[in-house]
Amino acid sequence: MRARDDAPLETPVTSMIDIVFQLIIFFVVTAAIDKDVIDESIRLAQAKYVTAEEKTDPRAVLVNVGEDGGVNIALQPLNLLQLQQILTATRTQSGNSVPIVIRADGTAIYRYVDGVMQAVGKSGMYRVKLSAVATGGGKSAKR
């Protein structure tokens, strides 16, 4: 006579749930909710020699400059006068040492970046940084 298998036919879900929860915890922890709103349409210029920023000053103001010269902060389109007003307000609130990071499209002509720099200068700020994609990992340019 054949012995009947008494083991239940259920799929063992316990270990699967364990793994799924681990994955969820990983994504929750690594998802930066307070991350700055980045304009995905901007293709930054590439920099071979400088190193990527480990930590950005939390006070930094990110100004996006599109290929067509459109300026926005956190995807909010602005003209140069509005930008200047925002920067002046930032200066009044947090001082003039707040870094202004210009995220300009690599193919945008410099006239647009210059307009933003002038607005920064007129607002009384002076710490300007140009953003680029770090591709080389900080290798030296010396020959």
Binding site: A45, Q46, A47, K48, Y49, V50, V65, A104, D105, G106, T107, A108, I109, Y110, R111, Y112, V113, D114, L130, A132, K139, S140, A141, K142
Partner: peptide
């Protein structure tokens, strides 16, 4: 004003690298 931003970035990057 007519130069592309990436041309300026390339020069600045080179200077920093040196």
């Amino acid at each position: 004003v007519q130069a592309q931003t990436q041309e300026l970035v390339r020069v600045l990057d080179l200077c920093k690298g040196l």
